[in-house]
Amino acid sequence: MQASRARLFKEYKEVQREKAVDPDIQLSCDDSNIFKWTALIKGPSETPFEGGVFQLAFSVPEQYPLQPPQVRFLTKIFHPNVHFKTGEICLDILKNAWSPAWTLQSVCRAIIALMAHPEPDSPLNCDSGNLLRSGDVRGYQSMARMYTKLAAMPKKG
């Protein structure tokens, strides 16, 4: 418990310092609970998520960093490795390939990388995965772009 709190506090301070360094990630800690974090990440450029801002929810276990944090998308996203309804993410480093050397910040970076490089062979959203697997990149991109517009961009007017 103490170790995880100390480590999260370190990360908190680092985040405050690094804010300007990585403009794509804005991590913030819940005011009353250091084990709850949210992040706003920018959709990577040259992807259908470009221009969107996606919110992630982190739930950090007491055994952190020996155990990985649980992360899910709060913003709806059409992506092969993200569950369309729950926002659950299928990413190896959040499951069996976790290492305590990862931080919340680096997890965000890994998720941004996942957005740019979907892994259609392990789909959590089969419809999305199947579009890519069948080579319909245009179909996939337009669906993903539509949901980015609908859910991840400020409403016009």
Binding site: N81, E88, C90, K95, N96, S122, P123, L124
Partner: peptide, 8 residues
Amino acid sequence: NQGCMHMT
């Protein structure tokens, strides 16, 4: 109990 169909 959760996750995608790719089991290990």
